[in-house]
Design a protein around this nucleic acid. Structure first.
Length: 209
DNA sequence: ACATTAATTGTGT
DNA sequence: ACACAATTAATGT
């Protein structure tokens, strides 16, 4: 267990902290599609991913949801973290997209370690900054009508995460995660296909390398 | 092999 | 955004 943790977080943390993580952390296993936190729940633990990934979504009244970011091996759960510090119920849902393994850290230590371990503080803050830039970038693209950039980056990220350049996705699924509409996504994809960036098939998109 | 149907994708307004 | 057309994949006969 310590070895796997070292592999995932060894670059970030000194060994004393790694040691302590194995003591206070609880191992957890999620199958693809399993929910870690529902929106509205209180976040009392944050995951450190060993394998797989967690998808963080914001949910809306209309039943739709917007993909905010992923948590992967070596990441901190940025959006979950913000809820962990506050006293309000979570406004996001966390779902495993792949089969995943993780260590859950209780809120207590996550907070305490901020002052106790420089490594932890640096890790949390720099990871959070990274996510914020990513999310702001996407909102910016949306605000300025540069949806093409969003769709392209979304596909690249999916491809990286699933380790495949053939993605089994319908235009509608993409539209729902990006909170856009199917027609818009179809048109953007057609354009990208024209630029030889990818090829389209029924329920399947192949990215050109 | 052909027809039927449902889902997905494409396009004009 | 909506409506409709075209295409594709799956299924039954």
């Amino acid at each position: 267990m310590l070895a796997t943790l070292e592999n995932a977080y060894g670059q970030h943390f000194e060994s004393r902290l790694l040691q302590e993580i194995t003591q206070v952390g609880a191992y957890r296993d999620l199958r693809a599609g399993a929910v870690l936190f529902e929106s509205g729940q209180f976040v009392t633990q944050i995951p450190l991913l060993l394998e797989g990934n967690i998808k963080i979504l914001r949910e809306y009244e209309d039943g739709g949801s917007l993909l905010l970011h992923y948590i992967e091996k070596g990441d901190a759960g940025s959006m979950l973290m913000t809820h962990c510090w506050g006293t309000k119920a979570s406004e996001v849902k966390a779902v495993a997209e792949l089969d995943s393994r993780m260590i859950m850290i209780p809120k207590r230590q996550a907070q305490q370690w901020m002052s106790q371990y420089a490594d932890w503080q640096r890790f949390i803050l720099s990871n959070h900054a990274l996510r914020m830039r990513q999310i702001v970038g996407r909102l910016e693209a949306t605000a300025f009508g540069m949806l093409e950039k969003n769709v392209w980056e979304y596909l690249r990220e999916k491809s990286r995460i699933h380790q495949k350049n053939t993605l089994s996705l319908t235009h509608d699924q993409i539209a729902r995660e990006l909170k856009s509409s199917r027609v818009v996504v179809s048109r953007i994809l057609k354009k990208l296909e024209g630029q030889q960036q990818l090829s389209l098939h029924r329920s399947k998109i192949v990215l050109n390398t």
